Computed example of a mutant assay.
Amino acid sequence: MSSRSALRAPSLALALAACGAADAAVTSNVALTSDYVFRGVSQTDREPAIQGGFDVTADSGVYFGTWGSSISWLSDASPDISSNVEIDGYAGYRGSFSDSVAYDIGAIYYWYPGSYPGGFNSADTAEVYFGITAGIVGLKYSYALTDLFGYADSDGSGYLDASVNWGFADGWTLNLHGGKQWIENNEDFEYVDWKVGVTKAFENGFSISAAYVDTDTEEALYTNPQGEYIGDSTAILTLARTF
């Protein structure tokens, strides 16, 4: 979902004070993936991506952070577009209904800096989301407050994410996902995506994951000018490190 974990100490102190995080946990992450796939669709024309970010989580449950990745889908769409990076900023609150049921509510902004031709509908997108987790099962719904990733008149679009993350052995997790993307006033582009994967986490903060992803996107609508069907099934390998 480019590590930007190097916050200056005064800025971090102010941020922690703002969310009442006297005993906040700060973590950062960096990853190299064979293909950046978001909601089932390749963002890098089936090429590798470097990614990273940081998170600040307070004891109260308040959290915020940022995450970034190299991309190519915008510059692939037009030679007049120079954007080659995605930077996300997010904040929210995590709590629980009981010992076994937790929730997560927040907002995220996807920013694609770069130069664009006149009349281009901005891909920058703001969403709010609500998620609930019961044991190994999770369900999350995201709602677009703006046009969704450049689709015209698409504010109000939604994405439903269902997941299962089962720790079946020491350090090993089975990752299952199914999602549905609704796009207001662009119904032909709506689709379902799914994933089957496995992650191995190591005690030194490294992890490696392998996944198979697929969608039911219309090939004609999701083939870029380079002739790549970016909604097609693919296998992904990712190496990550958390600090």
Rank of each mutant, 00 (worst) to 15 (best):
S2T: 09
S2G: 07
S3K: 10
R4Y: 13
S5T: 10
L7S: 07
P10I: 14
S11N: 13
L12P: 01
A15W: 12
L16R: 15
C19P: 02
D23F: 13
T27E: 07
V30F: 15
F38E: 05
Q43N: 05
P48T: 12
F54Q: 07
D55G: 01
V56A: 01
A58T: 07
V62Q: 07
S70T: 10
W73Q: 02
L74W: 06
L74T: 02
D76Y: 10
P79C: 11
P79F: 12
D80C: 13
S82F: 10
V85M: 07
I87V: 10
G89R: 08
Y90C: 09
F97A: 07
I105F: 15
I105S: 07
Y112D: 00
Y112V: 00
G114D: 01
S115E: 12
G119Q: 11
G119P: 00
F120D: 06
T125Q: 08
V128P: 01
G131N: 09
T133A: 11
G135C: 10
V137A: 05
L139C: 09
K140D: 13
K140L: 12
Y141K: 03
F149M: 09
F149A: 06
Y151V: 09
S154A: 14
S157Q: 12
Y159N: 13
Y159K: 11
D161Q: 08
V164N: 01
N165W: 00
N165F: 05
G167Q: 15
F168N: 03
D170F: 14
N175W: 06
Q181E: 05
F189C: 03
Y191R: 00
V196P: 00
V196Q: 04
T199I: 06
E203W: 12
E203K: 10
E203D: 15
N204G: 02
A211Y: 00
V213R: 00
T223M: 11
P225N: 15
Y229G: 08
I230P: 01
I230A: 14
T238V: 14
T238K: 15
L239M: 12
A240L: 08
